[in-house]
Every structure is written in structure tokens, then in C-alpha cells.
């Protein structure tokens, strides 16, 4: 099948070779004095499981993943249901939704860095007025609130993505089952729960999968806003792998961490596909 050759070549060069190299790298480490990679056996893996910072990064990543997935899913669906009507002006709103998606995440991070600035950030100001947070508490420099501060940026940028997918899904649903349910005596809430959401399940599954994978490799916002701090409170797996690889020049250990990240993504994604019975 010669027509497959270009595709296979691309796949080999950009996916399969790096993957194999990554696995190979996780059994090696860069030796600065020798200026080369040396074989270290399972040392990286053994270190990893005893590394407190790895476990901390894993827990940060999973909290970030779970909280944001739930928030963006629920918020996205609510906004989609709201905007999926023919009220004048909502068309414009639906169009505006895509705006946040064209902003590079690093820029969004910078924006929220300013918004949450302890000196002049508008969010700090508002929270102070509301009495939620004292203006002497810098959001991004306090370990209990730093991750929440980053989550805000992610929610702002990516909830519209959910909304767009859900609106597209809602618009493609047939109207008749809703009408039939109405005549069957169902209330709006019952129709949503028993008819609309089940019909949307495939769309929801796709959105969860795309966003879920994105969230598990979270990097940009932490990198720009907190560099993982304060302490290790916003270090995700990706950021930790980056630090080990490029700041500490521990290529083997960095490769090991990213490999674990990959396994987690594959595992969760496939479990999800299996349990939701999504057929592509």
C-alpha cells in the first residue's frame, strides 16, 4: 500500500520514534562530566516512586483535571442551554464565544496575572470589597489559592469551547422527541434530564475527552503565572517534567515523568471510552 507511505513516515518520525526514544531515555541519564547519556537501569523509575515532588505534581494535575472538567462541563452546558434560543442578540453572543479561543494561553495567563495582581488587580479589588479575600493575601502567591487563581484563567478561556460544542450538539438534535415528551406531560427539567442530555451523550463524551486530555497536560498557565509556585503548589506533571529536563538537565528523569503522564492520559481516555461506550 504505497499511498500509506507518507502517512506512515510522518507517524514514525514524529510519533513512534519520539515515543520509543522517550522510553529508552527513561532508562538513561545525562552525565554532565561525561557529557553523554549513560545507562542507569530502573533508577529513574525507582526514584520517581519515592519522589515526593512527583506525587505532589500528580495530585495537583488530577485536582486541576477533575475540578476544571466538572466546572467547565456544567457551566458550558448551562450557558449552551441558555444561548440555544432565538432571542435577539444571542446570535452575536454565540459568535463572540469563539473569541477567547483565539488568544494564546500564555497571553491569557499574562492577563490573569494582571487581573489577580495584589496591588492593582481588579479581581483582588472586587474580592476585597466582597470580603471574600483580604487584599493583603496575594492570590497567586498563596499556596491555598494559587491553583484556584490559575483555574480561573482556564475556565475563562476554555468554557466557551464547551459551550460551542454543546450548542452545535443541541442545534443538531431533532425537535420532535422534545415535543413528544412535552405532550407526554414532561416538565422542562424532565425533558432536559431524560431526553436532551441522553441524546447529547456522544457530544458530551467528545467534549470531555478533548478537554480532559488538555487538562491532564496543563502547562502554559502555571508556567506564565506562578512557575509552579508558591512552593510546589501549582506544579503539574508537565511543568515538573519540563523543570527536570530543561532546568536541571535530567533528561532521563524528565522523560520518565512525561511517560507516566502519557500512561495516565491513555489509561483515563480509554477507560472513559470503554465506560461511556462511545463508538467513533
Amino acid at each position: 500500500m504505497p499511498w500509506l507511505a507518507p502517512l506512515v513516515a510522518m507517524l514514525v518520525v514524529f510519533t513512534i520514534y519520539p515515543l520509543i526514544y522517550n522510553v529508552w531515555l527513561s532508562f538513561h541519564e545525562y552525565a554532565p562530566l561525561k557529557r553523554s547519556l549513560v545507562y542507569v537501569g530502573a533508577e529513574n523509575w525507582i526514584t520517581l516512586f519515592g519522589d515526593e515532588r512527583f506525587w505532589s505534581a500528580l495530585s495537583v494535575t488530577l485536582s486541576y483535571f477533575i475540578v476544571l472538567l466538572v466546572v467547565q462541563l456544567v457551566l458550558g452546558m448551562l450557558i449552551a442551554l441558555l444561548l440555544d434560543s432565538d432571542i435577539a442578540g444571542f446570535g452575536v453572543l454565540r459568535g463572540l464565544l469563539s473569541l477567547t479561543l483565539v488568544i494564546p494561553p500564555a497571553i491569557t495567563g499574562m492577563m490573569f496575572l494582571l487581573i489577580e495582581d495584589p496591588e492593582f488587580g481588579v479581581l483582588t479589588f472586587v474580592l476585597d470589597i466582597l470580603g471574600v479575600l483580604d487584599s493583603t493575601t496575594p492570590i497567586l502567591a498563596t499556596s491555598s489559592t494559587a491553583l484556584l487563581g490559575i483555574m480561573l484563567a482556564d475556565i475563562w478561556q476554555w468554557t466557551p469551547f464547551m459551550v460551542l460544542i454543546f450548542i452545535a450538539g443541541l442545534r443538531s438534535l431533532p425537535q420532535e422527541p422534545n415535543e413528544a415528551a412535552m405532550l407526554d406531560g414532561a416538565s422542562a427539567l424532565q425533558i432536559l434530564r431524560r431526553i436532551t442530555l441522553p441524546m447529547m451523550s456522544k457530544v458530551i463524551a467528545v467534549a470531555v475527552l478533548i478537554r480532559g486530555i488538555d487538562l491532564l497536560r496543563a502547562f502554559d498557565y502555571m508556567f506564565v503565572m506562578t512557575s509552579g509556585g508558591p512552593g510546589t503548589s501549582t506544579y503539574t506533571l508537565s511543568l515538573y517534567a519540563w523543570q527536570q529536563t530543561f532546568s536541571f538537565i535530567k533528561w532521563g528523569y524528565g522523560a520518565t515523568i512525561s511517560l507516566v503522564g502519557l500512561v495516565i492520559v491513555l489509561l483515563l481516555a480509554n477507560l472513559f471510552i470503554y465506560f461511556t461506550r462511545v463508538r467513533w
Binding site: A180, M182, L183, R194
Partner: peptide, 21 residues
């Protein structure tokens, strides 16, 4: 009167069965 309170049963042209049930 809201459709759900009219006690009317309807058979639609394309049946409108609930596809997930």
C-alpha cells in the same frame, strides 16, 4: 394551556421516538 396539560397524545410523521430509550 401548556401542551403537557392538554392531555393530548400525538403520533408524529417521523415517529419522534426517544432515541436513547
Amino acid at each position: 394551556v401548556h401542551p403537557r396539560d392538554r392531555n393530548i397524545a400525538m403520533v408524529f410523521q417521523n415517529y419522534a421516538l426517544y432515541p436513547t430509550m
